[in-house]
């Protein structure tokens, strides 16, 4: 038997919503980055689920490149978070409110 497409889409929608809630609610910069990763994964799940019907596998190619860009994004974001921590001595997002001392 074949899993229906709507199950994948429902899972991806729920995952995206949870990621959005994490980004809004959490105050630690690293946990916010985790929420962004969850949202990217939800988008990937949609692409892969639709790619099942595609003989050219375009969705899977796009999903591969999304994974690459997500890796680049998390590397640069964590470097910035480390720099913010060196400067402000915290990664609490509400306390990081100025660009320069």
């Amino acid at each position: 038997m074949v899993i229906p497409l709507s199950y994948f889409l429902l899972t991806a929608a729920l995952l995206f919503s949870i990621g959005l809630a994490i980004v809004i609610i959490k105050r630690n910069a690293i946990v916010v980055l985790m929420g962004v990763e969850l949202m990217l994964n939800a988008a990937n799940l949609n692409l892969v689920a639709f790619s099942r019907f595609d003989p050219d596998l375009t969705g899977q190619f796009f999903s591969l490149f999304v994974i690459i860009v997500a890796a680049a994004e998390i590397v640069v974001a964590l470097a910035i978070v480390l720099k913010v921590f060196q400067h402000f001595n915290t990664v609490h997002l509400d306390e990081v409110a100025e660009m320069k001392d």
Partner: peptide, 23 residues
Amino acid sequence: VKTEHRRTFWGILAAGGIFAILS
């Protein structure tokens, strides 16, 4: 390492709204 929660209501509201639209 603890983290704090702020704006829990608005977060749940935005996420629930997005999920309602998507579903």
